[in-house]
């Protein structure tokens, strides 16, 4: 339903999104997870045809977001990071306006308003001035606006930010419910949020996709320890025999992809989680008088990102 192919976006010198590719299948709920300034909002603005990418292609429901922007816009309901509200309007008038500019038939507008007011449990707030609403209700009006023309695709940029815990739960339940008959992509910087709402997670950091998996698998890989990559001038069998006996090492394997030259082997050493074995490995290699060409810790990136993500629910007023 959403195909993002090698999308890059620059703002002047800033590289906000760097060669990003992923897809969202029809009916899927995908979480777009990343710390602040990762490029989530930028990617969503490109998907919704708000701004063009510097390079790359995006298709929504088969339509190119650049060449066929109108068709894409008709099919997407978009909740931007800051709900785009006219504070001087009543909720009902605002929804009537957004329905009209999204092409809802005049005669169908009252019915559609009833529908989204009920979905987002706005209740009597529909008669109020938006200026008078709390943050939580404003967020729901933003969501109601995104749903008003019953779009196939929902793009929700940090839909639970700034809500209180009760409202967060309500919004997440609503998203799950909407997931039954919509294709949804929602962004968040809160780790538990994706596992609660999404079937699949795309993790973005500094403009690049760093992982893509189910929430369960990602959580598992987070707990699965670390890997050290090294290049030594020695026979692999000796290296393996020596390193495997070390404290904390779980496995030693030959990295065939990066092996170089005669007598030099690239080795991957996996260790238990939370244990930095680099110093021990280096000491061992030096003791054996092998030539140490390279030693580095890999797959740390994912963990670094997780550290930057909010892992606990913040309670906000």
């Amino acid at each position: 339903m959403i195909e993002v192919q090698n999308v890059t976006k620059r703002y002047g010198q800033t590289l906000a999104v760097d060669d990003v590719s992923f897809t969202v299948e029809k009916g899927e709920i995908v979480g777009f997870l990343g710390p602040n300034a990762a490029g989530k909002t930028t990617t969503m603005r490109i998907i919704t045809s708000y701004m063009p990418a510097t390079a790359g292609k995006v298709k929504v429901a088969g339509y190119d977001v650049f060449e066929n922007a109108m068709e894409v816009k008709k099919r997407i309901g978009y909740l931007p990071e800051n709900p785009p509200l006219y504070l001087d309007m009543k909720v009902e008038d605002y929804l009537a306006f957004t329905a009209a500019i999204n092409g809802v038939d005049k005669s169908a507008i009252p019915r559609e308003i009833d529908r989204v007011v009920e979905l987002t449990t706005l209740g009597d707030m529909r008669y109020r001035l938006i200026r008078k609403l709390s943050k939580g209700f404003r967020q729901r009006v933003g969501l109601a606006q995104a749903l008003i023309h019953d779009p196939e695709v929902l793009v929700l940029d940090e839909p639970t930010v700034g809500l209180d815990p009760k409202q967060i739960i309500e919004v997440r339940d609503l998203i799950k419910e909407l997931g039954n008959d919509h294709t949804i992509i929602l962004s968040t910087h809160i780790l538990p949020e994706v596992s609660m709402t999404s079937e699949r997670v795309v993790i973005i950091n500094k403009g690049r996709i760093v992982a893509e998996d189910t929430p369960t698998n990602l959580m598992a890989s987070l707990k699965s320890g670390e890997t050290v990559q090294l290049q030594v001038e020695a026979p692999f069998d000796d290296v393996k025999a020596t390193l495997e006996t070390m404290d904390g090492v779980t496995s030693v394997s030959l990295d065939t992809e990066t092996s170089v030259g005669e007598n030099i082997c690239a080795v991957r050493v996996d260790s238990e989680p939370g244990k930095d074995i680099r110093k021990d490995v280096a000491r061992e290699v030096v003791n054996k008088n092998w030539g140490l060409l390279e030693l580095k810790q890999i797959s740390l990136t994912l963990e670094d990102i997780f550290l930057e993500l909010t892992t606990e629910e913040e309670v906000q007023a």
């Binding site: 109108m70 816009k73 931007p80 785009p84 509200l85 999204n102």
Partner: peptide, 11 residues
């Protein structure tokens, strides 16, 4: 106010 984003993403 950010409503420009609403207008420019509407058909």
């Amino acid at each position: 106010s950010g409503t420009m984003e609403l207008l420019l993403t509407s058909p």
